[in-house]
Design a protein around this nucleic acid. Structure first.
Lengths: 191, 191, 191, 191
DNA sequence: AATTAATCGAGACGGTACGTCGTGTCTTAAA
DNA sequence: TTTAAGACACGACGTACCGTCTCGATTAATT
């Protein structure tokens, strides 16, 4: 890593991009978000600061790029019931956020509070996740499990709020099964 | 404000403390959390930097002190039903977080992700709020409204997660009534 | 100016050279010597940086090229006496150095102190000027005005030193007539 | 040199000033004026850049400070005749400018062409030197050597111009005796 | 009353990071 | 082969804060 790398001229150099994102990921892993300075990333990647700023104008943009590059949340499994699906979803998230790649997601939420770039990226990402959640509710509705009167957007936000809260307060070891039951109780036709 | 203020000797000077916290609050209001530097606070309060560091060793500590000093969330009203109480609570929070004094709470959550001092202070604060939430559920139980099987801590976290999510994604204008109904549906004996 | 200009193939493009030297002259006029960066010249001339470096490897070389292109000091007039000639010469120089084209000559002297390319070019240019001065002394000698014992090179350097000093200290408004009289007094047979 | 140095608080630290000027002098000696970057001086002196900028806002100011600290031109000797005095003065200057401490004076003249701080400092310094020159002419007048009609300021500038020219074109090995004779010829009552 | 000790405003200091700019080299794709 | 364009590593720029320190003053509590 970080071997001699020459410019390839008038085109963006993919090797440089890779070296920078690698360096960013390493630093995030070692020192956390506060250690992720443009200076440090440039130093470790043997890249010029101008190159960083050319492609990632803010620290937040770099953070998002590093996150997007390595994240892969497993798909949410179909367990056959809404309660089971929500429970599994929460557990998948908690597991992901406990791993090194996922650990920095809470820093993304934090950075979004002060950086519009990150906020935008996070909004887009959240929209995507809400769609994935929508699938779960669609499946429940197809099964005839779901009470008609409950707005899907409210349900989605209840689940997501529960998940984020536990991430942000550092309680990823909480009981997802119990949480799921409490949330879902009122949403199904039979309870 | 910030007139000449000398030491009052071997005791902590309350006028200095007030001037510093005032300055911090003003800066937070004007420039936001990113503008809250020790340097700027000292400058505006006409205080020595050493004085700041003596009493508030980190930016987070200062942030919390400034927040605690001015926050007062109105008590959560008793509306006579759980759904009404939860709805009112969410609305009170959304209103508070929309005002200048409350607006910086999301920055506290963000700062807590990287600053253990803030995290500790936020944990304590959250514990306090959970107690206030407990009152709502106690009232519901006293009314005979509440289904026995639902753990109070899960309910509290569902409500709080919903609230925080909307704060952090900037959706404080969302419909608290609808949210409350969706959450509470499964927790009452009749629905 | 600076319209689209593509390569004309395997030959040096004179339009490019002109555009570059024009751009350099404009920048010198607007921002002075410190503003004359290779970057800025390339930008304004819509030329590639490599093209600049190919033909003018240093900033000094570019400076000299721009200067040589536009300078034209009026010839030194023949007034009929050595004192008059020297006086006229000084005045011609002071006038030239006061105009935009001449104003940057002092920057050339400055640049020569740290750039061997400029030093060489300046040496050559100075040699040329000394020859022009020689003409004045030749005319004086032909008139029988000149005392034999005075070395022409010393006289030339006295005059040139006087001129440069006033350029470098920003006193181009000084009295050339008085200066000339003081210098020439000892060089003529009658005084 | 450049050992650990602590702040001495609210007062300027003389050890820091010394370390910085030492570093500047060393760098000037090793790399010349172009190597004298604020960055490099701070690095070598183990000083913060802010400290440099606090006391010497420009590179030119630092250059002047380093020069003033080490310069000492021997006084101009009294040889008993104007020609001898001028000749000796030129030789003293040429010798001084040939030594390491003096070698950078030409860079000061160069820097003055683009930096108003240096220009101001150089003007003051020149004023001082012109006074020293005035002494030579006063002595000559006291001896009755001097022709009345010649303005002292013109003579001073003729001598100084001659000296500067030789400095700037790198001819410090030229014959000061011959120069002096050519200059002085017309200024004395007998020639 | 004299001394001690804590506190204060001020700001110098060595550092680190910021975001920008210019350097000189290089590659591409067009002419 | 030359050109415009511009990516690239590098390093200096000048600024802002960091957290620590010293200074000199001020005053309360202790002797």
């Amino acid at each position: 890593m970080t071997q001699a790398r020459r410019s390839i001229g008038a085109k963006r150099n993919p090797a440089t991009e890779a070296a920078i994102l690698d360096a960013a990921a390493e630093i995030l892993d070692e020192k956390g978000f506060d250690g992720l300075t443009m200076e440090a990333v440039a130093r470790r990647a043997r890249a010029g600061k101008a190159t960083l700023y050319r492609w990632w104008p803010t620290r937040g943009a770099l953070l998002m790029a590093a996150y997007q590059r390595q994240k892969q949340i497993g798909d949410y499994p179909d367990t056959g019931s809404l309660e089971g699906d929500v429970s599994a979803l929460l557990q998948v998230l908690f597991d992901h956020w406990s791993r090194p790649e996922g650990r920095l997601f809470r820093h993304i939420i934090a950075a979004a509070q002060g950086d519009d770039d990150v906020r935008g990226a996070l909004d887009a990402y959240r929209e995507d996740r809400i769609h994935a959640l929508g699938d779960i509710f669609d499946r429940a509705r197809a099964r005839g499990e779901l009470a008609d009167a409950v707005p899907a957007s409210d349900m989605a936000r209840a689940v997501m709020g529960m998940a984020w809260l536990h991430l942000l307060v550092g309680r990823l070891d909480a009981d997802a099964v119990s949480m799921a039951r409490t949330l879902v109780r009122g949403w199904t036709t039979e309870n």
